[in-house]
């Protein structure tokens, strides 16, 4: 029976090692502790073009991550992309006239949302919407504009 107890002990250690490895993976590898579901609130924003924005993309103010994108939907009436974001409860003083922009991380990186704060006295609450939005910078459009203006330098000078 001593063998049985040894086996039990070792198997217990094995299982604990497995759980410890899982915890390590959760915290050290994926940074899980950053957000838990209950301490966030939701806001929306509508964009004419979201580019490459994906679900779970970060939402930042001044470069600091304060939340992430949870859902991306299309409004069938005005064909705008409606983004739902979850914002950390600690960042609950975002003025209602703030602007939401879509930027690219680095030159070729993923898209993320950056909120430029406005000056209003009232703040966004759960279910609120950011009115001012700027669409994503689409590289192809930019190149197209550049090529067009290179071909037609005169027309450029005439624009009001």
């Amino acid at each position: 029976m001593a063998k049985q107890r040894y086996t039990d002990f070792i198997v217990g250690i094995f299982m604990i090692a497995g759980i410890a490895a899982l915890v390590f993976l959760a915290i050290k590898v994926s940074g899980l502790t950053t957000f838990s579901e209950s301490s966030t609130y939701q806001i929306k924003a509508a964009f004419t073009n979201i580019g490459d924005l994906k679900v779970r993309a970060p939402v930042t103010i001044a470069g600091v991550k304060i939340g992430r994108v949870t859902t991306i939907d299309l409004n069938p009436q005005d064909f705008k992309a409606v983004i739902t974001m979850e914002i950390d409860n600690a960042s609950d003083r975002i003025p209602t006239d703030s602007t939401a922009n879509i930027f690219t991380a680095g030159l070729l990186g993923a898209n993320y949302i950056s909120i430029t704060p406005g000056f209003d006295e009232t703040f966004l609450k759960n279910g609120g919407e950011i009115e001012n939005t700027n669409q994503a910078l689409i590289l192809q459009n930019l190149i197209g504009q550049l090529l067009f203006s290179l071909k037609n330098p005169d027309k450029n000078k005439e624009s009001p």
Binding site: L22, L25, A26, K28, V29, S30, G31, L32, R56, P58
Partner: peptide, 19 residues
């Protein structure tokens, strides 16, 4: 090394799916 890992590895998509 670690911060790049933490911001790009998602617990639900990567680790849980792996499990």
């Amino acid at each position: 090394f670690w911060s790049g890992m933490q911001s790009n590895v998602d617990f639900r998509i990567d680790i849980i799916n792996g499990i």
